[in-house]
Design a protein around this nucleic acid. Structure first.
Lengths: 137, 137
DNA sequence: AGATGTTACGGAGACCGTAATTATG
DNA sequence: CATAATTACGGTCTCCGTAACATCT
């Protein structure tokens, strides 16, 4: 293969690329990214150079995405979204750090079936939780 | 929320993080990333600062990953892998560039159901393909 | 001593912002 | 003319590498 499009890439440029693909306008993109508009232009030049494609061509109202850019955006945008949520959620739920009281709504039928194992699991995973109140619905 | 762990992150650091998690040794990581070993140390400091966790603690033979680091690696490593393959493969399959003859194996039952639309699709997406031979199985 | 990670320090380069320029309607 | 992108240019700030230090077996 010619060269690795991943290893040699400044990953931060992908953020700019995605925003640019959403906005199709450098000024708007620059506002969303809190940088100047020429900074976006330079970033796009780097992206073009890296991928060997124009990616976005100048038009009347702003930019038009090339087919390559569309495919690229379509494939990497969900990945970046997933990365974003993973980074932000990974830390937010740690049962070990839970304490106080938690309340769970449950139907009587389910309750009789799983209440015991549920209590066990909570006691194990979140030892600092004082008690769990189960509300019937 | 306190702060966004994605937006404010230098994504390139994640590459260092993954390698570091694989090697558990700054010297080896530095070799794989073609940088000096102190550069890795600094990068790790930035990672620690960003995530608010030690991530790797010094030991006799190198480094030991914290639980946080393990969870982080476990969750983001497949995402980065996917990003890597996507970037490198996205360009490799372009139906427009296909030519010659393609062969497709298909059961008679399926054949009768989709043969027509299949031919149509191929003709449209890959106009340079001369013919498609469908082999019954 | 030999391996490790950390700190200090100086320099090179990347990146940005302001301003001027070009292109396009 | 108005809006948008590109280029020029100067400055800063990040990041790296060399070297010195610290720690551990």
């Amino acid at each position: 293969m010619a060269k690795d499009l991943f290893s040699n890439l400044d990953l931060n440029l992908l953020r700019t690329f995605i925003i640019l693909h959403q906005e199709r306008n450098m000024r708007k993109a620059s506002e969303r990214l809190f940088v100047s508009q020429p900074a976006i232009s330079k970033a796009l030049q780097r992206l073009r150079d890296h991928f060997g494609d124009e990616l976005f061509v100048k038009t009347h109202h702003g930019l038009r995405a090339t087919e390559y850019a569309n495919q690229l955006a379509e494939s990497i945008s969900p990945i970046l979204d997933e990365l974003s949520s993973t980074l932000n959620e990974s830390n937010e739920f740690n049962p070990q750090e839970l304490d106080g009281v938690i309340k769970i709504a449950l139907s009587p039928f389910l309750l009789s079936a799983i209440a015991n194992s549920l209590f066990q699991a909570i006691r194990t995973e979140a030892p600092n939780v004082q008690s769990a109140i189960i509300k019937l619905v």
